[in-house]
Nucleic acid binder design. Sequence first.
DNA 1: GATTGTGAATAGATTCACAGCT
DNA 2: AGCTGTGAATCTATTCACAATC
Lengths: 208, 208
Amino acid sequence: MSADTSSLTLNRLSVYLRCLEHLEHEGVEQISSAALAERFDLSASQIRKDLAQFGDFGIRGVGYDVSLLRRRLVDLFSLDEENPLLILGIGNLGTALARFPGFHRNGFRLVGLFDSDPEKVGRRVAGLEIRPPEEIAPTVSRTDVRLGILAVPAEAAQESYAELVAAGIEAVLNFAPVRLREDPAVPVKNVDLRIHLEELVFRLANGV
Amino acid sequence: MSADTSSLTLNRLSVYLRCLEHLEHEGVEQISSAALAERFDLSASQIRKDLAQFGDFGIRGVGYDVSLLRRRLVDLFSLDEENPLLILGIGNLGTALARFPGFHRNGFRLVGLFDSDPEKVGRRVAGLEIRPPEEIAPTVSRTDVRLGILAVPAEAAQESYAELVAAGIEAVLNFAPVRLREDPAVPVKNVDLRIHLEELVFRLANGV
DNA sequence: GATTGTGAATAGATTCACAGCT
DNA sequence: AGCTGTGAATCTATTCACAATC
């Protein structure tokens, strides 16, 4: 299947999923691409093209069945299962992420919290006990967790990424403001909060 | 000046800034676009094109002066001043963001925390007292804060955005997983953590 | 009559390749 | 001799416009 889908398309599909959840909650049953675009300030032809990559989800002359399309997208992203996650680095940000509701429902489940600081090991956050990094590999074997969230300080990020790779983690969401040297088998998605602020400040200073 | 710079370019410039900070810390004084690209897995011609949009920062035959280029980028993003920020919604995520070191140095300064929950008003987080949303407007007048971070639950996001707009905030970083109906004068950048996880899960399930 | 799915057209971003400096 | 800055070439993404379908 289309493994060559761009990040742009995939990320828009996630947005459509949020919109559909919203509409289903409101009790809307059918919607056309034009109405969806109007309602959430999207592009109708882009919605159709994005969706058409994965199947004929709509009905010509009618539109899309909100609930059915939502289920299709949930299925596309394997969100019907509970995808296990672990977090390495339980500082301020790691703690907040551990408590973040979106990581406990909606297709994800936190199965481990790790920190190299012996002071933190043994504490409980969000119902899980913080464990030392040596225990990542056993957790991977036990739970089949494939996704790791990296929330360590910038200095430790490269080394911590290597620990995740060595333990068998297959993809990493990196919150450290550092460009990691990637292992080709373990893709990294970076989330750098300052990047967004910097863009907004630039635009404010330069008139959009 | 080029106010028509794409987000793609601006975000890469932020990445270059991180790389230069790293290099300066290591004591590197000069670097060519090719070496920079090699070191951080970037594209040399793209680095040159991105930088050339804002001036002739390099020296032909030599490369870029690390410290000088870093200062140019800091200047470009107005990070030499301390850009004031406020946060609306001091739950788990808002609290973590308030404590996030990147929002206290590196060109930003938190000047206000707001929450509509009377239980929370009066508590102190990261050295600031949480205040009710009515006090956003006075804070805007007093501190000239232009940037607001929205960290409220999804249901409250649209209304809270409207409060920020009404109080005179000029740009918003939205952490709620909702597409906001935007006021054309107050741009929104969305940070949806689930989007990234969903992309990674999709790629794992479909072989990159 | 309305709306999808899609090839063709346009717009935008990246890479190439080299002339122009140091 | 080496590396930047940049137009031209390529690649990617978005929008248009309409035939196919309900």
